[in-house]
Amino acid sequence: MSIQHFRVALIPFFAAFCLPVFAHPETLVKVKDAEDQLGARVGYIELDLNSGKILESFRPEERFPMMSTFKVLLCGAVLSRVDAGQEQLGRRIHYSQNDLVKYSPVTEKHLTDGMTVRELCSAAITMSDNTAANLLLTTIGGPKELTAFLHNMGDHVTRLDRWEPELNEAIPNDERDTTMPAAMATTLRKLLTGELLTLASRQQLIDWMEADKVAGPLLRSALPAGWFIADKSGASERGSRGIIAALGPDGKPSRIVVIYTTGSQATMDERNRQIAEIGASLIKHW
């Protein structure tokens, strides 16, 4: 058993032996400061991975655009179909130039040979490839079927209504393609630790998130040596930015963190910096 498999397999085991986890309101002070700095709403939640207890939250039940963070949920739905014998990670999917949409750094290189379902999930999560996400959405029946999958998990909040890139429109008060921090954190925890997916599929999902290559300026920039993080970021119109993550010290995840912001006029660099500073406060007061 690899170190990674050891880590995921023991998450339920550690729940019975973990020390009490204490919240630190200092992080919420930073979240509120980020709102002031960005001139935008910020949603935040910090969840204990083992118990599911909410440690801190700010606007946990307000809607925010999901942006590309939905791609983790999408690959969770794909893995659920794999577990049920309805899909194979090794199945190759062929597509054409007409299928390519904006920001497809991986799929645009494989027009001649296509990509496997496994490769598409990797591209969608680690590189946020939009065509990969659309191709995967097609395999499960489209955005409405992803919403149905989430409903069956008990998440009646999170919804996907459109495809890439239209889902990134982020119109104020538009509930399409949105979630709430509390709903996203709970759903992510179920995917990573619950019985919905097999152990192998849970491991695969967290491996893809751990290999994320496009979230460096966010929480990863504040991470001390030896800490673990598996994450997925997102960005969209109207100053929207977000990240969902499982992270913790000693090389294993122990908390879920979800951060969303929307409605800012700030630059992408400034949005990144504010999220990184929230992460730094979280780690300092861990």
Rank of each mutant, 00 (worst) to 15 (best):
G248A: 02
E87D: 10
R176A: 06
L219C: 02
L38W: 07
L73G: 04
W208S: 02
R202C: 07
N152V: 11
Q97T: 14
Q203G: 10
G242C: 05
D99G: 06
I54E: 09
K109V: 11
P224S: 04
H94A: 10
T198K: 10
L218Q: 01
I243F: 05
G52R: 04
Q88R: 14
L100K: 04
L19P: 14
M67T: 08
V214C: 09
S221D: 09
A211R: 13
G141E: 04
A246T: 08
L247I: 13
M268Q: 07
R189M: 11
A148V: 13
L19C: 15
S128R: 03
E270R: 07
S221Q: 11
I256T: 00
L10E: 05
H5T: 07
H24I: 07
K32I: 10
L197R: 03
G239S: 08
T112P: 14
E87Y: 04
T138K: 15
M153L: 13
A235D: 01
L282R: 01
M66C: 05
T186L: 14
W208L: 03
H94Q: 13
R176G: 05
D231E: 04
K284T: 11
E145L: 09
G239A: 05
A276C: 11
A183G: 05
N50C: 11
D250A: 13
A211S: 11
V117C: 03
R162A: 05
S57P: 00
A15D: 03
I93P: 00
V101L: 07
A77D: 08
L111W: 11
A84P: 01
L47P: 02
R271W: 03
C18L: 06
I11N: 06
P172Y: 08
W208G: 02
L10V: 14
A9H: 12
K144G: 13
I125H: 00
L150W: 05
N168F: 00
D250F: 10
D212E: 05
S233C: 05
G242H: 03
Q88A: 12
E210G: 09
A235V: 04
D269Q: 12
G251R: 09
L73V: 11
A183N: 08
Q265E: 15
N173R: 09
V8K: 13
A185V: 04
A123V: 05
G279C: 09
T186P: 06
H285W: 10
T267C: 11
L111S: 12
I283C: 07
T187N: 10
L137F: 05
W227G: 02
S51N: 07
G226L: 03
A222C: 13
E277W: 03
N173C: 12
G242Y: 00
T107G: 04
K109T: 14
M127T: 10
A84T: 12
Y44S: 01
L55A: 04
W163T: 07
R159V: 04
L196G: 11
L196Q: 13
A133T: 08
V106D: 07
A183I: 07
A124D: 00
N50K: 13
T186I: 14
R238V: 14
A245S: 07
F58L: 07
A246R: 01
T178D: 01
A9R: 10
L89P: 06
T147P: 06
T198P: 04
L55I: 13
D33E: 15
D231S: 06
L218P: 01
K144V: 12
N98Y: 15
E175R: 09
I171S: 14
L282A: 07
H285D: 05
L146A: 03
G279S: 08
M153T: 10
V8L: 15
E166T: 09
G251Y: 08
K102E: 03
L196V: 15
A9V: 12
